[in-house]
Design a protein around this nucleic acid. Structure first.
Lengths: 265, 265
DNA sequence: CGGAACTTTGACACATATCAAAGTGTGTGG
DNA sequence: CCACACACTTTGATATGTGTCAAAGTTCCG
């Protein structure tokens, strides 16, 4: 099974992040209030309104389980029962969906502050795998509890809907990319998107380390790894980016934007 | 504006196959309760639980606006303020998303019982156009009202989440299709999907009229119209389908499934 | 009947995949 | 600490699926 490559990488998968693994982290969990407002639920509840009161509620009443996920480990697998959403506290994940015939495909990359598992709500089971691409930490947000809480805090409910809707819009963007952009346009868009997301998190917009391989990028963008590599080289020769392994520098974002919008001429 | 093509296209359309020659339904409109449970909110609230009481509530308290949309007319446009979701009562719609550079792409087709506008909740404005491909009828479901109601009827809330989640899963499917399937696999999947959806609505699984052009199919599947046409012909020569204009017969669905899963050999 | 929208088919072009081989970096075990 | 293996990346040569361009065919409707 292709899907298990990531697992084989580290034989020692016992320390899989189960919600129960919680124990070790107990110390931190106590200070969930501050932590959540800094990063975890930021996307899910804080921007809602500035209610300190309800933030307290959130922290007090929703039992978060903090979990570590080492690089290569799988946070959840297709088929697992859905009980919780996961907020990426720090680190980097890929989501992969499996087609019936064994083929699989990367459907997204998630970084700090983003929520994993939105697609699993309806089916009540996970339909994709979430794999850590670097040592990461997540907050498990029990879905049932979230629902109860959202029922009492309307702005949390609203925020939750916004988050789901945003996932629809994100996927829509991937559909447009896959359906009507050339390889170069896709790569330009991919790099600019990463750049912008790193910037939004306080990291450099101009240089960063890719957490994923060329093959994973290709899978996400509907391209083969060789094509990804070639286009990286091409952009580099044009002076648009610097490439050294996984270390990328955005040297000319205006050009990248031009490529994204109108293709490379 | 490219988006208006559909409108200009036909000053007067008539002969399109409608699922329910409209006028006949007039009697039903008064009894919104029964109507909703038969089709409109079916997806949104009914499967929730069998509560006759809350079904009453839904019908009584949410003011639905029934609207007719003629073929070629646009139900909503990108940029319009989002106030309501639309349940397709009967008819057929396409959704098209616009890229910055003027390109646009069909992102989905919606038929009876399906909900339009899920992606607009977060942004609070529509990001895509919804165009009727045949004379259609929709129920506008005011979002604010739905939220209020859902707050009081937990199963409605749950059902709403399931519906949003289902949209994420649907789009995920399109991503997989666009990212890793050949043209033939895409077309086979497309036809089988339509077939299955028609069947679920009580129409024939084996023969139906396409409501969209080859170009719209191509746009949706990330292919050019000529490619769509060629593959239809190819499938026809192999005896897998019958093609006469927009009238399609599925002659060998097993073969189509084989193509979808493993490609044509 | 004539025009418009749509579809089909053919010839050819081109972007990306495939196959192959060499190059680079990294972690592990001796 | 080295060396070996392994994963990953790069680059080249070639193949192929799909796009592009063009033209003829069909159906619909005024």
């Amino acid at each position: 099974m292709t899907a298990n490559t990531a697992v084989r990488i580290n034989p020692a998968r016992s320390r899989m992040p189960t919600n129960a693994a919680a124990g070790a982290n107990r110390g931190k969990i106590a200070q969930c209030t501050t932590t959540c407002s800094t990063c975890n639920l930021r996307e899910l509840c804080v921007p809602c309104c500035g209610l300190t009161r309800s933030e307290m509620d959130v922290a007090d009443r929703l039992v978060f389980t903090r979990a570590r996920v080492r690089r290569g480990e799988i946070l959840y697998r297709a088929g697992d029962r859905f009980t919780a959403l996961y907020a990426v506290r720090n680190g980097f994940f890929k989501s992969t969906a499996l087609l019936e015939n064994g083929r699989d495909q990367v459907t997204g990359f998630s970084m700090t502050g983003e929520i994993l598992g939105m697609d699993s709500i309806g089916p009540e089971q996970h339909l994709s795998n979430a794999t850590a691409l670097e040592d990461s930490e997540v907050c498990a947000i029990p879905f049932a509890g979230l629902q109860l809480l959202a029922h009492e805090i309307p702005c949390l409910q609203r925020q939750f809907h916004r988050t789901m809707s945003r996932e629809i819009v994100r996927e829509r963007g991937v559909i447009l990319l896959l359906g009507s952009m050339t390889a170069e346009e896709r790569i330009a868009m991919f790099l600019l998107n990463l750049s912008q997301r790193f910037a939004a998190r306080g990291y450099s917009r101009a240089e960063f380390y890719l957490r994923m391989t060329r093959e994973e990028i290709g899978s996400y963008l509907g391209l083969k790894l060789e094509t990804v590599s070639r286009i990286f080289s091409k952009f580099q020769h044009k002076g648009m980016i610097g490439v050294q392994q996984k270390y990328i520098r955005i040297l000319d974002s205006a050009s990248l934007e031009r490529v994204m919008d109108r293709g490379l001429d």
